[in-house]
Amino acid sequence: MSGDLGGAGLSGLAVNAELAWVLVGLGLAVVMVQRRTLAIGLVTAQALVLVGLALGHARGPEEYVAAGALALRAVGLATVFLLLIARTRDPRPSSAGMAPLRRGGLAVALALALTWLVPTIGLASRDAERAVLGLAAFGLLTAATRPATLFQVLGVVLVENGLALAALELPGTSWLIELGVAFDLILIALVAGVFHERIFAEFGAGDTAALRSLRDGP
């Protein structure tokens, strides 16, 4: 595969370039779509691609544990998010904050800036490095520009999906990071779910545009 770099003497497993760009494409779609269910589907598809990659790379029990953790995370998060949507049906679509094309343009610009600013980071393939930085950029932008509470959590998930991809290329440490990320994301999603439901009950919408009372001014 083109762009293989190796990493600090480790025998990193280079992620297939096409799959890396599929992950990026799914991430960009999350930035641009309007419907929450569609965004959840895209993030889950992304997580399942990561599961496939993890299983493809697995050589020993630890790697299979990591793949299992990723699979559990993908299914667990999708279940939590879909349950939340079922329990908190918005009477009107939450405000998008910014036009989809503008969001997409900004996301691509941020991703390009990140890949330009951050040189080689030591993963096994340059494509994977770019995909990781791209997903981090898309996640940050989603959380920053989407007022809907669920989209903000999906922004966090996007960032961590990128990190899971990076961890796949780190033999030895990978399973620990995968387990940690899986545990962390499910915990955060559950707490975010509690907040989402209460915000919905309090304001009639899962929309952070309503959360504007805490300001100190310049």
């Binding site: 600090a8 980071i121 030591g122 993963l123 990781v132 990190l163 990076a166 780190l170």
Partner: peptide, 14 residues
């Protein structure tokens, strides 16, 4: 965590 992943990639041994 991105920083941690980069560090893990650069420390020999894994």
């Amino acid at each position: 965590l991105l920083g941690i992943v980069l560090l893990a990639a650069g420390v020999p041994g894994g």
